[in-house]
Every structure is written in structure tokens, then in C-alpha cells.
Design a binder for these strands. Structure first.
Length: 626
RNA sequence: GCCCACGUAGUUCAGUGGUAGAACACUCCCUUGGUAAGGGAGAGGUCGAGAGUUCAAUUCUCUCCGUGGGCACCA
């Protein structure tokens, strides 16, 4: 049996059929759809100015499913106004307005925008004017509406179907995406090339929302968030705990096979640790306020001790590394822990299981030499591959998150060591290029201590989140004083890989719920087998099978409710249980079971022993489907 | 934290300036049933919390808490 387990592990680590999706398709600005969306944004602005004269304009670009426009409104707009705005937009479209543009040389453009009385546009124009290579600014006109805009647009509003768009939400958004600026009102609309496309999109969306982990989490009794416990502090119900435990068991196997060593560390720590590691300044906004205890020293002095709920596991693991002198012979040292961490996320950021304040992370730190970095980094990528392949996760892309020294918002966001950044980023880039894995670089998304590969996934509502991460830390070891004795006899600081292929249980399970629509593969399903008897008199046979399956650690239940047979079938299908076993006269006589798999209306009869073999094998191999 | 919306039974939702209703779930009784709702009865709500307006507030106003969608944030 052990041989089997190990065979399975090594097998699943072979081969590269890792085919992540590219990020959202690049926008083709010359496509009809782009022009339609962009033009509709101008039309919407025109309509909004009709009902809210004196409002000022921000930006109004196309987005993946439509467009938006930002305004400083003369008086608020609510959902009740959407119909009116749409009606006015349709009227405008019917006027067959021509979209035409003029290019003004800079000086004239600035003068012109001043006359238009659009302070935000004027501010942006002023910035454009200072940029190199810009000699003129374009203004688009349709009907009475003029907007500073690069285009392109449709030639005439009659090209836009009157029923291909729908305003769907109003939201606040900071001017230029910066929270230090004024908050504008953003109107979002969906827009497509035709009514049929719009309808298809809306139907698909409605269908997707049925998979929302918050809805399914409640329907399937996976987790509960109780406001008396606290915002963002989910309680895992028995069903959800099964999923966590199975996932955790899988990761522990993978980590064992790759030579990780497990550790266990406390959830709290004295503040001194964070002062030593220098984490505190970077995290102070996201940390729960410390617990403060007073104790008395021998001399009667009152001494204050502060304990923090840890926002990350790294410093604890670093202390394990430094608990005694280390030799290069011990590297790479891989310390793994499914560790609980607590972060005081801002109230507006907390959402379902996706952004929480208490979470459990599939964490590990690999301490290694510079020469070992590439191999170790790729080893982690392979572990991701095994996990993702096993779960059938495909719709993600890999983001190479690098630092941006020019980031005006985050001057203090990164460690100040340009050379270190350069080296670390090159190591990651080389490793990734060697592996042939596709990735997209994004500046300004790095961790404070180094570059990383983030696995970006979309929720059913279209929000992008990181589910897994693989980070190369080049600087903390020196800062914290982590050293090893090199072969030369000199001391060196290890590179540290921080990695979490299964992210946090909270977010990862949220994605799995949505990915599987709540119909989990057998190995993850909270209840794997449900026995339904046609009549009470077969329950004894059912109980016998139940006991036998339990002995094999199969999660099985016997339906003893008094509901009608039909109703039992219905309720158990609604719970998305993978295997329903129907027992009656026929089955009992022949020592058989009738099996109905989730998602199929058909059923097959087979001997109980065959069923047991098949189910066990399916669970053991963590198969996605029978 | 900011913008908008929302908060009524376990769940999904209806409703009202004169202190509430449906369906499903739950409990009990009848039904002993072969593949997605058998029949009946019952129980269940400080209408998120607090304050204000009013003779009277679940309903109107304000504050807080929570939820959803955005924005910002995301070690």
C-alpha cells in the first residue's frame, strides 16, 4: 500500500501538461465591439449630463464586458435612474450622430479644454502635455457632446444597436485610481454587438452566480460566518472541514514526497519578533492590535508584554532556522506548516471566504543557496502543477509580480536594494523561461522582500484573485540575521522561497466550490456515498453495507428519514452527493447495489464488492471523475 | 476606509404608519414507497440594533452593526 502511495506521487509529478489560460484576451481597439463600447460610454455621458447638468467628467473606457464612465455628479444617481438614462441613450443613438474628431496642438488643446469647463479632463491634459512624444490632443464630438479622447469610435451612432447594452451598477471610484483623490461616481454598463450577445452574456452570468461559493457554502453547509464571532472569521462546518482535511492531506503527501519537513508553531508571538525581523512597519496596518499583559518583575517593577496574533508564519519559521548554527550541507531546508494567520483586513475588503481576517495557509519556507534557487523554485512550480492537474484547474494565468521603484503610492513598499531585486528577478525569470511556462510580468505587485509568481484566478463574479503564490525572498535573511556556514567557511545568507500552492484553505476552497459548482470529485466530497432504501425493511442490509464501507474510511450515510422514496432521491441529489446507492428486494437478494452517480439519471447494478473496489480506487487516485 | 444598494421565520422571499404572511426545511400523525416535492396538523419572527418624528414605527429620519457589488487595499 505504501508503495502505491509513493508510486502515485512520483507519477503525478512527471510531465508538463500545465496549460494555464492567458490573461483576459487583449483588447483590440480597432474591433467593432471596442468601438461600440467606447462610443456608448460617450453616449451615456451625454445622457447623464442631460439629467444632471453641471456634472463633471472623469474617464469612460471600455471594459471586458462593457464600459463605464466616471462623474462628479451635480446630484446623486441611483439605480432608479438607470431606466431613464438608458431611454435617453436610445434616443441619442436614434439621432444618427456622427462621431468625428479634431486634433489640437498642445497649447490650443489646453485652452480648449479650459473652455469646456472640465477640471478633471484639464488636469489630465496638463499631464499629457508634459509627456514626451505628445504633440497634440484629440477631441471627439458626437452631436452636442465633446470629449477629450483618443478614440477610436464608430463613425455613426446608427451602427450601435439600441438594445445591446444595459446599465447595471453604480459605484464609487477614486479619481485616477488613487484613494488620496476625490471619489467619483462610476456608472457601469454591459455592452455587446447585439441584443442576442447581451442576453447570452446575462444568462451565462446568472448561471455562473448559482455557483457562487457564498451561496453554495450555505446551501451545502460548508461554512458559516457569525457576526457575533466576527466579520471575516468563518466557522467551518463538518462538510467544509472534510474538504479542508482532504486537501491538507494531499498537500502533506506532496510535500513529504518533495522532502519538506513539517513544523508546528504558535499563532501568537511577542512583538519583539516583528521588530527583529522588520516585518512590523510593512504590516502594521493589517495586524490585529496586540494583547497587552502586565507582570511584575522580582524587583517589583511592572513590565508590559505585548503579544500579537501573527499575520504571517515566516518569522516563526525563520526562528526555527536560526535555532542552531546551520551548514550549507543542510540546504535546501524546507519547513512546512499549514499555519493559521490573522490579518485585520479593511472592512470593505472582507468578502465570503475570499478575503477573511483569520485563515489557514498552506505555507512553507525553503532556505537555500543562490545556486539552488532555480531548482527549488521549479520544484515548487511542479507541485503547483500536480495540485492543479489533480483538481482540473485550468482557467488561471501566472503573474510574474515584480517591484516598481517608481511606484509613487508605495515608496516604502519594497526593500531598498536595487541590486538584490535585479538578481532575484533574473533568477525567477530564468527559471520560468527555462521551464517554458507562460507568464505575464506585472510591475508593482511584488512582495516587499522579493519577486513572485502569483496564480491568478477569476471568481464566478469575474473578480480576479491570487489563489497560489511562489515567492523568492532575497533580503529578509540578511535583515533577520539568518546565516549558514558555506563550504568556503564563510557565512552566507540563504535565499528564502515562500510558497503556498494551495494558498489558504479559505480562498482555495472558495475557488474549488465555484470550480466544481459544489459537485466535488469523490475524494473531496463531504459525503461520498448515500444509501437509500426503497423500504424500511431493507435498512438492515443498508446498515451492513454502511459498516463495511466505514471500515474502509469511506464517508457514507444511510438515509433513515421518513420522507418518501422520491423525496429522498431529490434531497440527496440536491446535496450533490456523488454516489447514491439504492437498495431494495433485488439488491438484497443478489448482494448487489444500484448505483446512481451525481449528474446522471441512469443507474447501474453491480455487486457490492465491485462497487467497494471501484470507489476505493477512485478515492485513492484522487480521480476527477469515475 | 470610501461610494451605492440591501437587512422580515432555519432558507428563499412577499407585505404594511394601526406590532406580520407564503413556500421549502423542522416536529407530530397518516402513508411503506423503485428514481427530483404523498396527505394532514403543529411549532417557529423584539421585522439587524439603538435613538428620533408620531396618538401609534417593522414601515418615515438619523446613527451603529452586518451583507452584496464597486473603488482603494491585498505581506
Amino acid at each position: 500500500m505504501w508503495g502505491d502511495v509513493l508510486k502515485h506521487l512520483s507519477k503525478s509529478c512527471d510531465g508538463v501538461n500545465f496549460v494555464p489560460m492567458p490573461k483576459t484576451p487583449q483588447r483590440d481597439v480597432d474591433s467593432p465591439l471596442y468601438k461600440i463600447r467606447h462610443s456608448l460610454a460617450h453616449v451615456m455621458a451625454q445622457a447623464v449630463l442631460q439629467i444632471r447638468p453641471g456634472s463633471k467628467l472623469g474617464f469612460g473606457p471600455p471594459v471586458d464586458d462593457g464600459f463605464y464612465y466616471d462623474f462628479i455628479l451635480s446630484s446623486p444617481i441611483t439605480e432608479e435612474d438607470f431606466k431613464d438614462i438608458e431611454k435617453r441613450m436610445k434616443k441619442i443613438l436614434a439621432q444618427n450622430q456622427t462621431f468625428s474628431y479634431r486634433d489640437f496642438p498642445l497649447e490650443k488643446a489646453l485652452e480648449h479644454i479650459e473652455q469646456m469647463g472640465e477640471p478633471y479632463k484639464a488636469q489630465y491634459a496638463g499631464e499629457l502635455a508634459k509627456r514626451e512624444g505628445i504633440e497634440s490632443i484629440r477631441f471627439y464630438q458626437n452631436g452636442p457632446f465633446e470629449d477629450m479622447c483618443e478614440g477610436p469610435h464608430v463613425e455613426n451612432s446608427k451602427e450601435i444597436p439600441k438594445d445591446c447594452f444595459k446599465i447595471h451598477s453604480v459605484a464609487g471610484a477614486y479619481w485616477r485610481g488613487d484613494h488620496r483623490h476625490v471619489m467619483m461616481t462610476r456608472l457601469y454598463a454591459w455592452a455587446f454587438e447585439s441584443r442576442a450577445d447581451l442576453k447570452a452574456y446575462m444568462d451565462k452570468r446568472e448561471e455562473a452566480l448559482k455557483r457562487d461559493h457564498k451561496k453554495l457554502g450555505k446551501d451545502l453547509d460548508i461554512f458559516h460566518i457569525d457576526e457575533t464571532v466576527g466579520k471575516g472569521l468563518p466557522l467551518w462546518l463538518p462538510n467544509g472541514t472534510v474538504i479542508r482535511d482532504q486537501l491538507e492531506a494531499f498537500m502533506k503527501e506532496l510535500e513529504f514526497a518533495d522532502g519538506y519537513r513539517r513544523v508546528a508553531t504558535p499563532h501568537i508571538t511577542k512583538g519583539d519578533l516583528y521588530y527583529q525581523t522588520g516585518h512590523l512597519p510593512y504590516y502594521k496596518d493589517a495586524i490585529f492590535p496586540p494583547m497587552e499583559l502586565m507582570r511584575e518583575s522580582e524587583s517589583g517593577e511592572r513590565i508590559k508584554e505585548s503579544y500579537y496574533l501573527r499575520p504571517m508564519n515566516c518569522p516563526h519559521h525563520h526562528k526555527i532556522f536560526s535555532s542552531r548554527p546551520r551548514s550549507y550541507r543542510e540546504l535546501p531546508l524546507r519547513l512546512a506548516e499549514y499555519g493559521h494567520v490573522y490579518r485585520y483586513e479593511e472592512s470593505g475588503a472582507v468578502s465570503g471566504l475570499l478575503r477573511v481576517r483569520g485563515m489557514c495557509m498552506n505555507d512553507a519556507h525553503i532556505y537555500c543557496t543562490k545556486e539552488q534557487v532555480k531548482d527549488e523554485f521549479l520544484g515548487v512550480m511542479r507541485m503547483h502543477q500536480t495540485l492543479y492537474d489533480t483538481l482540473g484547474l485550468k482557467d488561471y494565468y501566472m503573474r510574474f509580480s515584480t517591484w516598481d521603484p517608481e511606484d509613487s503610492k508605495g515608496k516604502d513598499k519594497y526593500m531598498d536594494d536595487p541590486e538584490g531585486w535585479e538578481t532575484a528577478q533574473n533568477l525567477v525569470r530564468e527559471a520560468m523561461e527555462e521551464s517554458g511556462l507562460p507568464f505575464e510580468e506585472q510591475r508593482g505587485e511584488a512582495a516587499f522582500y522579493g519577486p513572485k509568481i502569483d496564480f491568478q484566478y477569476q471568481t464566478v463574479t469575474g473578480r480576479e484573485e491570487t489563489i497560489s503564490t511562489n515567492q523568492l525572498d532575497f533580503g529578509v535573511a540578511a535583515k533577520v540575521g539568518l546565516v549558514y556556514k558555506a563550504a568556503s567557511g564563510e557565512e552566507g545568507h540563504p535565499y528564502i522561497i515562500h510558497r503556498a500552492p494551495a494558498g489558504t484553505h479559505e480562498r482555495f476552497v472558495a475557488f474549488l466550490i465555484e470550480h466544481f459548482g459544489g459537485a466535488f470529485p469523490l475524494w473531496l466530497a463531504p459525503v461520498q456515498v448515500k444509501i437509500i432504501c426503497v423500504a424500511d425493511k431493507y435498512e438492515e442490509y443498508g446498515r451492513k453495507l454502511l459498516d463495511e464501507m466505514r471500515a474502509w474510511f469511506i464517508r457514507v450515510e444511510l438515509d433513515t428519514t421518513e420522507a418518501s422514496f422520491n423525496k429522498k432521491i431529490r434531497l440527496n441529489i440536491k446535496r450533490k452527493i456523488p454516489c447514491l446507492l439504492i437498495l431494495g428486494e433485488r439488491e438484497m437478494e443478489k448482494k448487489e447495489v444500484s448505483l446512481r452517480r451525481y449528474g446522471s439519471k441512469d443507474q447501474t447494478s453491480l455487486s457490492f464488492s465491485t462497487f467497494l473496489d471501484l470507489v476505493s480506487e477512485e478515492i485513492r487516485t484522487r480521480a476527477l471523475a469515475p
